[in-house]
Amino acid sequence: MMRHAFKLFHVWVWGSTLLLLAATGTVIGFLLVRGWAGIGRELVFGETPVLAALMLQRPVFDGLFPAMVGTLALVLLSVGMALPVGLATGIYLAEYATGRLYSLLSLFFDILAGMPSIVVGLFGFSITIFLHHRFSGKIYPCLFISALSLAVLVLPYLIRTTQAALEAIPADLRLIGPSLGATRFQNIFHVLVPHSLKSILSGILLAIGRCAEDTAVIMLTGVVVSAGIPKSIWGNFEALPFYIYYISAQYADADELTRGYGAAIILLLLCAFLFGIAFWLQRRLSQRWFERV
């Protein structure tokens, strides 16, 4: 009886894991098998000469280049907006806030972290309506609004990684600075933040990945299928994840579908790359830590 239970347990745990790996493998494998042939210069640049496209001299019509540039602009803008606020908030939470204020703030950031991205998108959309009615009829959903909404989406990630990195610093390291006459601010900037830079950096990479892959937010705040390279932050833009979504529903011919597969592979590789580096940084960090102890 016991032996059967023992066997059953192992069948269950190995079976579950293999099922999960197989499912994930199928998703990735399917994408690669169907889309790998389409990966190449034309996928990104279409018929346009590469150099001319990169120098923005000639527009790219049948390639992913504008969507990739759009995603890049989106990531830079939104992480640029969220980073200062997120870092400062994480530092405040870990180094200054105490007691009730600490619990209250972390509750708020937990709620923000749990917010569905479509709600954040709807928030961005309502801001647009508000600005449109209140300030200028010329304000429509645009790159800026999308970036702002994405910044809201990744803000809790940045806050949490900063906070967790700082709070993980052991007490003996924390006391060196003050014992040498460092003010709290000096201790934060000369000792604590440099020490947790790697984990903060890995948090930033995860935030970038999140910005690059999210579709729901930008759908509501200004992404379009065809806009070319974004000319200003007040205009529409293209982005990889939205292109993938659009193609899945509206593809006209086999060529477009191939481009859809290509876009999905590129996005997948981009995210895998970012996550890979982030986890590698964290691993190296914990290993170094174990060596020290």
Partner: peptide, 27 residues
Amino acid sequence: SEFLTKYGFMAAAIISAAVPLAIFIFM
């Protein structure tokens, strides 16, 4: 400078905490 940085960090925290509230209020 110590005073300024402390309240600078606090301002960032208040902005961040205002975001979930602002989302609710807008909705």
